[in-house]
Computed example of a mutant assay.
Amino acid sequence: MTTATLMTCLFVFVLASFVGFEVINKVPPTLHTPLMSGANAISGIAVLGAILVSGAVGWNISIVLGLIAVVLATVNVVGGFLVTDRMLLMFKK
């Protein structure tokens, strides 16, 4: 991976982080739980992408970042399903 490619990837990551923070920050607090439960499918796609990135042969920075992405995206998916389950249990009698 060249330096230019790494800088481009880091720039896209930082820009996406800021945009994501601003979008989520504008959501009213009453909609955070349904929004999170709906985003589980997107997080599942992130898990698959991270597995593909971290599946290369040899150790380099992209494999380490891919492994971190797999762990964090998996935590996000599991946490989202747990919150959704708790939310649905509130509606059972």
Rank of each mutant, 00 (worst) to 15 (best):
V53P: 07
F91I: 10
L72Q: 05
T8P: 01
V64T: 09
P29V: 12
G79D: 04
C9T: 12
I51H: 03
V71S: 02
H32N: 12
L82G: 00
V75D: 00
I63W: 00
G58I: 04
P34Y: 00
M1W: 08
V83C: 04
E22A: 15
K26R: 15
D85N: 15
N40E: 12
V70K: 06
V57K: 15
V71Q: 02
V19W: 03
L88G: 07
V75F: 13
P34H: 02
V47T: 05
V71C: 02
N76F: 09
T2P: 03
L48C: 07
N60F: 09
T30P: 08
E22I: 09
S17K: 08
S62L: 12
V14G: 04
N40R: 10
G20E: 03
F18H: 01
S43F: 11
M1G: 15
M1S: 10
L65Y: 02
T84R: 15
L52N: 12
M90I: 11
V14A: 12
I68L: 12
N40C: 13
M1F: 09
I24K: 12
V77W: 08
G20N: 03
D85M: 09
I24N: 13
V70F: 06
V64D: 06
T30I: 11
K26A: 15
V75Y: 09
L15G: 06
A69I: 02
G55P: 01
V14D: 05
K93M: 12
L82M: 14
S37A: 14
V83I: 15
P34E: 01
I42T: 11
N60E: 08
S54A: 15
A39N: 08
M1A: 14
G80E: 05
V19A: 12
A73P: 01
L31V: 07
V57C: 10
V27C: 02
L52D: 08
F21T: 08
V53S: 07
G80L: 04
I68C: 03
A73E: 06
T8N: 09
A73S: 14
G80A: 01
G66Y: 03
A16F: 09
S54Y: 04
G58W: 07
V14L: 09
V70C: 03
T2I: 02
L35S: 06
M90N: 13
E22Q: 10
A39L: 12
L67E: 07
P34V: 02
G66Q: 02
V57S: 15
F81K: 04
S62G: 07
G55L: 04
I42C: 06
M87V: 13
V77K: 02
G58H: 07
P29A: 10
G49Q: 00
T5L: 07
T8R: 11
A46Q: 08
L48S: 00
T30V: 13
A41K: 09
L15W: 02
S43Q: 11
A41W: 11
T5V: 05
A73T: 09
A56C: 10
I63Q: 14
S43G: 14
M90L: 11
